[in-house]
Amino acid sequence: MSEILRLENVSRHFSGLQALRDVTLTVNRGEVLGLIGPNGAGKTTLVNTICGVTPANSGKITFDGKDITRIKTYQAARLGLSRTFQIVQPFAEFTALDNVAAAALFSQPGQSLKMAREQAMAHLVYVGLELQANHPAATLTLAMRKRLELAKALAMKPKLLFLDEVNAGLNSAEVERATKLIHELAASGITIVMIEHLMKVVLNVCTRIAVLHNGALIADGAPREVIENPAVVEAYLGQQYAKRNVARG
């Protein structure tokens, strides 16, 4: 397996708060990497740092053979790094169609608005929003907006796709539907990094798991291995629980 993304000793702090500490991580082509960790562990910051929203203070990030440590957000998008947001970020007044068209239009060179709209429709059909194509994004339900985010991300023809809690706030039927979509995407060959709290989904979908805790990477490996790692259990459930568990085990 060839690697598509490599982080070397990446750190980022926000006036005193160390959000990422020396994170070293590689992502391989075609895999589905689950990025997990307790709240405030730095998962979203890691994605933001890779995408150029909050550039790294130190370290090096390589994507597809290019150094992208100091890259601007829009350049990252054009290189094929795309993402969905934990808190959905639609263009509220635009229709669903134009939301996706914007993504298709600006992420690839030489697109016309007309072509972008045609492609956008195909992506809306793919995520099952074709009936809502002409509704303003502000009127969609949360589940629909999450799918809209996904359609936008796909319209950017990503090589690497970050999914930031696509399932948060969804009911179980909606989660099932989203999971199925992710499976299909992975099967189509897109490399995926997903931040996810639902363990069921993580174990179901991911081929590898990386765990962040207090901004540092504390585990990285096959799903089963990682969730039985005492350090991970401790990070999630506290020291006492971990000790008790080890004693029992």
């Binding site: 957000t73 829009y74 993402r83 947001f85 970020q89 639609p90 635009f94 600006f106 992420s107 950017m156």
Partner: peptide
């Protein structure tokens, strides 16, 4: 409408 999202789509 959303400048952050704009740069995110390239």
């Amino acid at each position: 409408q959303n400048e952050t999202a704009s740069s995110m789509v390239g």
